[in-house]
Design a protein around this nucleic acid. Structure first.
Lengths: 226, 226
DNA sequence: CGGCATCCGGGAAGATACTG
DNA sequence: CAGTATCTTCCCGGATGCCG
């Protein structure tokens, strides 16, 4: 009887109910979000999920592994350290994570000034890009967000995101995730932030100017809306 | 200080995290599922959500109303009774509910023989229809599932669902939701079920024979799958 | 019957300290 | 760095009862 028996589950054949039996507990979906761009280590997850405690993180990781949403993996040498990585099926949950977010941001109480993980802002680009505005736009953009490097390839509304050190990019942005969110979603003053040292822009500034216009926020709910 | 303050929330600007702050608690999403085809009364919700207790249902309804996901409404006379109805924005969460379900049913442990609400099976038709197989198929199908009547209009992959008493339909099916699920998703023996009185088929049987082929289940995860 | 409050037990989540 | 162990707090679920 080494296995923990779950005491609370939905008695319901509906797939949605079963999804919530699997990943409806606190933190599970956010852990999946953090893994969407590749393997992460225990303490990286801990750092990117403010407020989670180690025992809860372990519990969730064990459960998600049991469900085959993720697996434990040794990263290749020389970094031969343990990490957690989504399975193919786990990666297929990306649209679920995206749509939850896209739907929720219409609520007036959503506060985009809260802290943000690097994976969150990278995911939001995939969620929020306006294909119309991005038509004909091709660019390879690098990001250094705290410790995390990303390369985003934009090609006509398609957003390809890799978690790796930026090389050979048209544009390289260095800042904290929250700063990037402020610039892209809040119309934050890029020039002033750059002046203040909170943002570094290297490479093609024309691409930068276009990039920051590609991600319109959905309209907030209006008072008149039923 | 009449208002209950939430003690546990995510400190996270990500829209997904905010969605989970709103509807991440137990039962919330299933309540929304039950309301997707129109207003429901308190005890109807209670009956369709096996295992929920009255105080929890009240708590969730209050929270969802506060968030403007649903509203309380008096149904028009003579049935002037109170009911709960999604707002426009609440209805817009349908794709989220659907994708959760569609993703989850690939897991081998999903058990489609559990009890099922009428709304669940109706929702599943919208989620699971194979547009290719339904090409060129037009039909209006009525359902009587326990107490609940529905009319489903199929038109080339489009599924329109109304919660109302079936009238002027090409085909009328009367059974329990679980029976319908067994026939459509489990290849259940319609003839035998009809013989046994668990299923009544009225109207055009050619439409019935085609209808039950339109909803292929996604492939289960294989052992080889990483 | 529909809606809501209150109490209680158990289990899940959170905080903190500790270990290999 | 990657987890355990322990203790506390809070949430969920069930029962009961009130009120219109």
């Amino acid at each position: 009887m080494g296995q923990t028996e779950r005491k609370r589950w939905y008695v319901d054949a509906c797939g949605t109910a079963f999804a919530l039996d699997m990943i409806g507990e606190r933190w599970s979906i956010l852990i999946m979000r953090e893994l969407m761009f590749g393997p992460r280590r225990f303490n990286e997850l801990r750092a990117d999920l403010p407020g989670i405690s180690a025992n809860i993180l372990i519990q969730r990781l064990e459960r998600l592994e049991e469900l085959r949403i993720l697996r434990k993996r040794k990263l290749p040498p020389p970094a031969s350290v343990q990490a957690y990585e989504l399975t193919q099926w786990g990666y297929e949950a990306e649209p679920v994570v995206q749509m939850l977010g896209k739907w929720a941001t219409r609520h007036p109480d959503h506060d985009p000034t809260l802290p943000l993980s690097a994976a969150s802002i990278m995911m939001s680009f995939r969620t929020m890009i306006d294909a119309e505005r991005a038509r004909g736009f091709k660019a390879k953009i690098g990001f250094r967000l705290g410790e995390d490097g990303f390369v985003v390839t934009l090609d006509g509304g398609e957003v390809t995101t890799e978690r790796r050190e930026p090389e050979d990019v048209d544009l390289l942005l260095t800042c904290q995730p929250t700063i990037l969110a402020a610039v892209v979603y809040g119309g934050g003053p890029a020039a002033e932030l750059e002046e203040a040292g909170a943002l570094t822009i290297e490479g093609n500034r024309t691409i930068f100017d276009r990039f920051v216009t590609l991600f319109p926020l959905p309209e907030k709910l209006s008072d008149s809306e039923n």
